[in-house]
Design a protein around this nucleic acid. Sequence first.
DNA 1: TTTTTTATTGACAACGTTGACATTGGTTGA
DNA 2: TCAACCAATGTCAACGTTGTCAATAAAAAA
Lengths: 344, 344
Amino acid sequence: MKKPTIKDVAKLAGVSFKTVSRVVNQEPNVSEAVKEKVLESIKQLNYQPNHTARVMRKAPFSLAFVYDNPNSHYVIEMQNGIISECRKKGFELVIHPTDSRSDEVGNELASMIGSNQIGGIILTPPLSENKELVTFLLSKDAKVVRILSGEQPPDSLAPVLHVDDVDAGFKMTQYLLELGHRDIAFLGFHASHESSLGRVKGFKNAHEARNVPFDKNLIIDGEFTFESGMDMAKQVLSMPKRPTAIFACNDEIAAGAVFCARLNDITVPEELSVVGFENSPFAMQTWPHLTTIDQPNFDIAATAAAMVIEMMKSNDIYTVDSRGFSLDVVVRDSACKPLLKSAI
Amino acid sequence: MKKPTIKDVAKLAGVSFKTVSRVVNQEPNVSEAVKEKVLESIKQLNYQPNHTARVMRKAPFSLAFVYDNPNSHYVIEMQNGIISECRKKGFELVIHPTDSRSDEVGNELASMIGSNQIGGIILTPPLSENKELVTFLLSKDAKVVRILSGEQPPDSLAPVLHVDDVDAGFKMTQYLLELGHRDIAFLGFHASHESSLGRVKGFKNAHEARNVPFDKNLIIDGEFTFESGMDMAKQVLSMPKRPTAIFACNDEIAAGAVFCARLNDITVPEELSVVGFENSPFAMQTWPHLTTIDQPNFDIAATAAAMVIEMMKSNDIYTVDSRGFSLDVVVRDSACKPLLKSAI
DNA sequence: TTTTTTATTGACAACGTTGACATTGGTTGA
DNA sequence: TCAACCAATGTCAACGTTGTCAATAAAAAA
């Protein structure tokens, strides 16, 4: 009981296999009668076009999602967004986690492209920041879409889905300033991490917009992890003039900061407001629930997938436009008005 | 500048394209001199075998990872394990999240198999518990490997990677009993959830093995979520005879329970020990860090992938053996000896 | 009616690879 | 010396599609 081919269908329907192909591909110029007969035979034999043969004659129907990110929540949300779009369009997704520091990324991807498996690629930070990589992939005839944080990149190599970190950092800082905080620490600055650069920039901008001076010493370097969050909070909380609020560069750092505050008998939010960034599950599993920034990862990813697919389908120079996404503050319970100084 | 084919290489090396094919596939009976010449040409042209054409002539080189699981950490660990194995063997992974309650799963997968994209399938709970589905997939000539929790299934349809929940539940309960707890609540029983059945069974067995009676009312039904964990803990903590320990069916429930205890001014672990299951990131981001059960997801997944690949390669009836994985208690800070009753 | 156009269908090659089999030339064993 | 063998290489069909172009029949225009 072998898999039926297009020829089996043709034989059963009493037409040439080319006609069947036409019906399957919904090409014009097939008479209603024949079309019906063919469809009937297809159903009867439970025929399914051989995807592989089809790819060989036409173009790849797969795209790759490339990431180097320890944050499983982020990855899954992105992945799900991409998959949902792929399903709709009949494309397949290949997952490609990688180490952005290794030189192999390019070669690995090139080999997938070269072997005709992959037609399009979705790049997330920090890989999407690597222009050399993008140029290289472009030279291999792949369609590339980048998801980028931080500031809008100046180049137009490939479409960008831009997550406006500067604006989000601004909004969040503004929120804290409006609550009355004047000494806000920023945890998780990372010079090589584009999105942290953007968030810091928004942080600074918000201060300037309100004419609130900010202390550079309150911008702390660190990783995007819980442990690092603890360390940084420790640094900040032992300062002579202890800040009244912490702007953590992501929720894990925030969770670490809350944890550290608790270890030092500092109550959150009464004595210390802590806000996060990302709206990951951690935000809801810390006490108090974290006020944070929500990032519509699913939608971003789905849009990215739609773009790549569009680019793969219309193979001409026609370029899809870049898009920006703005993020919003999700108010929960980890930030409130600061206590009066005298009360501390 | 088109992609070079095997014929281009052949022309350059001055041999027939079949010989090139032999070199590429490392077949025997090629003289050293010729082999060297061909390899040289391959390098020079940067030739890459066309994966698609290869699949068409031989068998699929892709396998699918099918899951229906809201837990991103679990999914990513599994996924990474599978991918790492796929990389080694030159296989490609297709991710297939799905809704286990829908009837479409079978059809979706059948369509991937039928179209020659997928040769093997890795099924996780609860899909792996669905014998009908497994039988159906088997009938479509797919290689299937199941990852199952709970008790060893009696059938031998397809190889199983069995996670020994009963044993793990036993170990954890034993740990609590040894600490001196006698009133232990079990949060997160779910009749349709195989692994919860296994964990409860281990829970009961441990009590019986030590001749400790247990109260059936302390086994609470609920979902595997933070919110549900809070609800269940609330139920249990308001009982007249409040338990001294909580065995949560996963870390999220445990985190919810800890949270709930805190809301009720019950200190963990002094007044209430709470243990989790899974060793997810949440376990380290709750205060105190959760004592929990570690599940080697990466290894399990990698083994599963190795099995499917083995089955795909050796296409005969030769069956890969099922395997069991035992889990261990990770002792952290959320459980300790119970206070004397008089002290409560 | 005859010619031209158009819609429908089919024959055949091509995609890039591997499998089955044929050919060549050299080595072995009687 | 010659048959038998074997290693090395080549020829050609096949995999299941789609693209190109030709052939037919029907409809429209002359």
